[in-house]
Design a protein around this nucleic acid. Structure first.
Length: 204
DNA sequence: GGAGCGATGTCCT
DNA sequence: GGACATCGCTCCG
């Protein structure tokens, strides 16, 4: 996947369609690879900040010790147990936010962590939020879960529990018909438990 | 350019 | 009280 291709395949915004709740109503390991290539949209003060999803990780329920949901439903992780297509935002390591989307029907826990996106619109604003030059590499701008939330101004207070399937939501995921090739599955990274499962998906 | 490590808030035990 | 789904800076090659 070259930078030129990621850009050239970005269509007029009108051609994109919002992913419905049914898209997320399957197990995380099923939904995660299909999210690759979709557009993550953050509407910030009327501006559309858009990135193409290039890396995600699936987190399951009780059978997955690495998942926040594995300890059962708590105040912190309750979004993961709710209806599909909702934003689960948590604060980690004292300084970073991470964005997930809930999967499976209401009552069943599961989610997908967004690990990296490729900026396609609103790059100036993203760079400003990151304290970087707009000419910075995608990896530097939005190449990590904490970086995505910084670049898109996503916080737990403002976005945890937001419905990502509503056209009025500040966070949405669109399908513009882009079909990624060369999808790879690898072990998840940055975790201590259940590191053997192939639940990380990325566009190679 | 890669390994090591410190910073730092929130949640659960 | 400790673990933590991270990042960016330092230091060493």
């Amino acid at each position: 996947m070259t930078a030129a291709r990621l850009h050239s395949d970005f269509p007029p915004p009108g051609k994109s369609k919002l992913l419905p709740p049914s898209f997320y109503a399957d197990p995380p390991e099923t939904v995660a690879p299909v999210l690759l290539g979709k557009l993550l949209v953050r509407i910030y003060k009327g501006e559309r900040l858009i990135g193409r999803i290039t890396e995600v990780e699936a987190y399951l329920g009780f059978d997955d010790p690495a998942a926040h949901a594995s300890v059962g439903r708590t105040a912190r992780n309750s979004v993961l147990f709710g209806p599909p297509g909702y934003a689960y935002v948590y604060f980690i390591y004292g300084m970073h936010y991470c964005l997930n989307v809930s999967c499976l029907p209401d009552g069943e826990p599961g989610g997908i962590l967004f690990r990296a996106i490729y900026p396609v619109a609103g790059i100036e604003t993203m760079a400003k939020f990151r304290g970087l030059s707009p000419a910075s590499s995608p990896k530097l701008l939005t190449g990590g879960p904490g970086k995505i939330c910084d670049a898109l101004a996503i916080t737990r207070a403002e976005h945890n529990g937001v419905d990502m399937t509503s056209p009025h939501s500040p966070l949405q995921i669109l399908d513009d018909g882009f079909e990624p090739t060369n999808i790879r599955a690898t072990p998840r990274i940055g975790i201590r438990k259940a590191t053997d499962r192939l639940l990380r998906f990325l566009i190679a």
